[in-house]
């Protein structure tokens, strides 16, 4: 099994806006967050928006949902498969937490909840083990989209370490 993914001193945060974010606002917010020093990793979650109608008489029809957009975050293309309802992050310390709160105050025109807690598993789960094996990168632990397929590359490495 891989080791626990996080440093014990790291904080986990959740931004939970009172409205589901449009792709453009999510893009702006995520870009500002991605630029901060001290953000270890983050992911977005929310209700899924399918490419095609999954069931019913219209099964297979293209949906073309406005929330299903490709956005650019820190120079990387991210294909949004959900309507952004929340962002969960891991940061190094409390100063970064306050920086993120300031960004949310500035960019979100509606109320939001901002809380600290445990949102990303810190140990490898059975699912993680089954998907990535015993020698998985600890940074990826708990970051998988439970309904996503690995071939769709559900995780983007934004700040690749130079070789």
């Amino acid at each position: 099994m891989s080791d626990a993914s996080t440093n014990a001193d790291y904080l986990q945060l959740e931004i939970f806006p009172s409205r589901l974010l449009s792709p453009s606002r999510a893009e702006t917010l995520l870009n500002e967050i991605a630029l901060l020093e001290g953000v270890v990793r983050f992911f977005v979650h929310g209700p899924r928006v399918p490419q095609t109608v999954p069931y019913g008489p219209a099964t297979g029809e293209t949906v073309d949902h406005p929330a299903n957009k490709v956005i650019m975050v820190a120079g990387q293309e991210v294909d949004l498969e959900v309507s952004v309802g929340g962002i969960r992050l891991e940061v190094t310390d409390a100063d970064v937490k306050e920086d993120i709160r300031e960004i949310c105050d500035r960019l979100l025109p509606f109320s939001y909840e901002f809380r600290e807690g445990l949102f990303i598993p810190t140990k490898q789960t059975v699912t993680d083990y089954a998907k990535r094996g015993s020698d998985a990168d600890p940074m990826l632990i708990g970051m998988a989209d439970p309904k996503g397929k690995l071939r769709n590359k559900p995780i983007c490495i934004l700040n690749k370490k130079s070789e």
Binding site: R25, V53, V63, P66
Partner: peptide, 26 residues
Amino acid sequence: RGATVHGHSLRLPEDGLMFDMLDRCR
């Protein structure tokens, strides 16, 4: 919504229209 009805208990999107994963209304 004849099929795929979820959305009634979700937060509203920014435009105030109830979330619809099949995008029937705009």
